[in-house]
Design a protein around this nucleic acid. Structure first.
Lengths: 300, 300
DNA sequence: AGATCTGATAGATATCAACTATCGCTGCAG
DNA sequence: CTGCAGCGATAGTTGATATCTATCAGATCT
């Protein structure tokens, strides 16, 4: 049995006339005659009593037609819903963001995203890189903003913008007077984030350190900056966080080698809504265009 | 879009695996791949995200699958209901009966019909011939028991049994002493039913009269018999009414020429449930078999 | 009695879903 | 790191069938 068959039944029942029903269905009258006959054979019951002047639905038809109507209506509803879902730039878009990026990037891009993609309901999800990748692979996220490379055929990624690191120093620190700071000079008293933050590994790598110094494992950049402001050491922060850092009596200095990280958009290679991914990436990249070239502290 | 397509979608969504879904649908895996792709093109949205190890339904699929499930369930329900309607000897059967027959025939055939056709819900409808034929043509009756011939290609009929007429006389009537009465002898003082009763015309015809005598237009046989018992005249009653007539101080006599009427089952020639019509006719004819040959008054 | 309207039928055609065979990709294991 | 296995996609063919046009047969109306 076929949805088309059900539509034929409904049409004949409605018009009580094969010719007009056929016209309403956009087929020829013999088509309808043959198909109705086939359905009757299939169901084992006569649906219509034909005479030369009228077509009357049988009791059996009356009993069945409600189901037919519902089935057809549901199928039509499905098409209608699908039509509203056609726009790849509409609907929910779950976007993962790492914690060292979210508080500083989201305020920048949220309005541009809403303006450029009004139908796209972006749901940010903040977590560390590994957790985001797990959720991405598990179809719990549609894309993620990371600061690391990803490999494997399963995921695809695209760089959005470069984010330079800045040295964060207490005002009384010996290096605070410099115009710029060499990465290796921070190694001796640099404070870092807790395990799992990509920034932790990147900061350590930038200074040429492998292991860890001291026992502090800050859970957030805010904690780290407060510790620096209190004179417990130095740290290395991503450029977008400069605005937040300047409030608290901290000296920011560019790095001699302009070390930084690249913020990337990552998604499953097979994710069907590539258009939405591209659009989101475009908006963010365009908002941050020229950021790395300018002075980190005043472009934002 | 097709109900089969919807079943494919449901299968893939359930198994999250094209091969197993194909097996569940009884088709090959390429069939499923191609069809799912076609539906996706038709809907304009991706339903599944395929990777080499897993098949995951998209958000769009989640939004659509409820409709698909309902549509398929309704179609299945339709088939199930149709299966219960397959038996032509089941369901409602609206049977018209003329007033001069119903009170006497129904008590005879109701139990046999119920025993022979337990699933057939017979709904008797009592009215005069013309009204029954109207309802029959208007699909408001499935068949009717009449005592007249019907013609035209629209209706078909079948004789069930012959019903002889009897002369009903007041005990003091001159003819009451006879063994039998000649039809023409009743003409002078015969009382008849109101217009519209076929028995009225048949009684008049049997006595060779065309017009009407007197002003009485009895609405029922019971009225007529009471009038006869009261000595106002004679009448002619159908044989099956003999039982009712014998109670009331009336003399019944057979007619010399054995005049009578033939009770027929009438139905629309195109009525699809010919099996039910035949069965009902068989039961009634078999119950009344031999009736006309026996003595009218004691066979019943 | 002819005209007309109805649904049914016949035969041809084109669409399409199904199959088998095979490919390409991915992940695992020797 | 290289075959091996699993999975979905693709190609090409075949068979079923829904559809068409043309026509028939029955019934009603003028």
């Amino acid at each position: 049995m076929n949805l088309r068959d059900l539509r034929y039944i409904l049409a004949v029942a409605e018009h009580q006339h094969f010719g007009r029903a056929a016209e309403a269905c956009g087929v020829s009258q013999p088509t309808l005659s043959v198909q109705i006959r086939k359905i009757e054979d299939l169901l084992g019951v006569a649906l219509f009593e034909r005479s030369s002047r009228a077509v009357a639905p049988t009791d059996a038809c009356q009993a069945l037609i409600g189901h037919a109507r519902t089935a057809v209506a549901e199928a039509d509803a499905m098409l209608a819903v699908a039509w509203t879902l056609r726009d790849p730039l509409a609907g929910r878009f779950r976007l993962g963001i790492i914690p060292t990026l979210a508080p500083y990037l989201l305020p920048l891009v949220f309005a541009p995203l809403r303006d450029a993609l009004p139908a796209l309901e972006i749901e940010p999800w903040e977590d560390q890189t590994a957790a985001l990748l797990d959720r991405l692979r598990g179809h719990e996220l549609d894309a993620a903003l990371l600061a690391t490379e990803v490999d494997g055929p399963e995921l695809a990624s695209r760089p959005l913008f470069a984010e330079p690191f800045l040295a964060a120093l207490p005002p009384e620190h010996p290096l605070a007077g410099r115009e710029q700071v060499a990465e290796a000079e921070l190694a001796s008293d640099m404070l870092v984030l807790a395990d799992g933050h990509c920034l932790r590994d990147q900061a350590l790598a930038a200074c040429g350190r492998e292991g860890t110094l001291g026992t502090l494992r800050a859970a957030s950049l805010a904690t780290l900056l407060n510790m620096v402001a209190a004179g417990y050491g130095t740290t290395l922060i991503p450029g977008l966080a400069a605005g937040a850092a300047q409030d608290g009596g901290i000296v920011l200095r560019p790095l001699a080698a302009r070390t930084g990280r690249t913020v990337r958009l990552v998604w499953r290679a097979r994710f069907p809504r590539g258009t939405a991914v591209d659009a989101v990436g475009d908006v963010i990249a365009s908002r941050l265009r020229g950021y790395a070239e300018g002075a980190a502290s005043d472009v934002v």
